[in-house]
Design a protein around this nucleic acid. Structure first.
Lengths: 106, 106
DNA sequence: CAGAATCCTTGAAGATACTG
DNA sequence: CAGTATCTTCAAGGATTCTG
């Protein structure tokens, strides 16, 4: 979606999608099961949750662990690389905090 | 688009849109005129460029200066608050640089 | 030159039903 | 429980035309 013209295009491509950021935010809280994420992120649909998790997995941000049991048991967690997104989140949050006083100014 | 559940939702809402990031990236290079941005961001459409610039202006990221001349002359530049986005860009870029070695690992 | 207004296309997201 | 497979919807984005 974002041309490689822009240096940070890849990061934003990764975080793209209505739910992606919220999913990562949930996983920053630790290991979660599929159903657990579904409930926390309600009313996200199964389809979207699956799609986004797969995309994040492919990008090396999320690790998927399957336990061969019946009923099925799948766990999702951030990889070390994914954990490093915390820094970006913190930077964004800091930026937002200066927003109220500065928007409309200058 | 992004629920306020997520602390950084507002920043990503702001950078949302296929071209937004690229526009900000251009403006990090200094003051630009409308037509100048159009050429740099080719093949962006007038409609989208206008829409995104208005959104950024509303958020206090971009300042629009109109010179009442004929032909019209409009300049766009980042506000101080907008300039601070540089930090976020730098953080993202740093994160991307560690991507190659880490994706697929763990 | 810098747009406003209009119409059209496309794809992400949502709803629903089914399954190993 | 954790998906996959389809079908549908809706809004962002794109193309085109017109104007102060």
């Amino acid at each position: 979606m974002l041309e490689s013209t822009c240096p940070v295009g890849r990061t934003l491509e990764l975080l793209e999608g209505k739910w992606t950021l919220l999913i990562v935010n949930e996983l920053l809280g630790g290991v979660k099961r599929f159903g657990q994420l579904r409930r926390s992120l309600h009313p996200i649909s199964q389809k979207i949750l699956t799609e986004r998790l797969r995309a994040l997995e492919e990008r090396g941000v999320v690790k998927r662990t399957i336990y061969s049991e019946i009923p099925p048991h799948v766990e999702y967690q951030l990889t070390e690389h994914g954990q490093r997104l915390r820094t970006i989140f913190a930077t964004m949050k800091a930026w937002e905090l200066t927003a109220e006083s500065n928007s409309r100014s200058q």
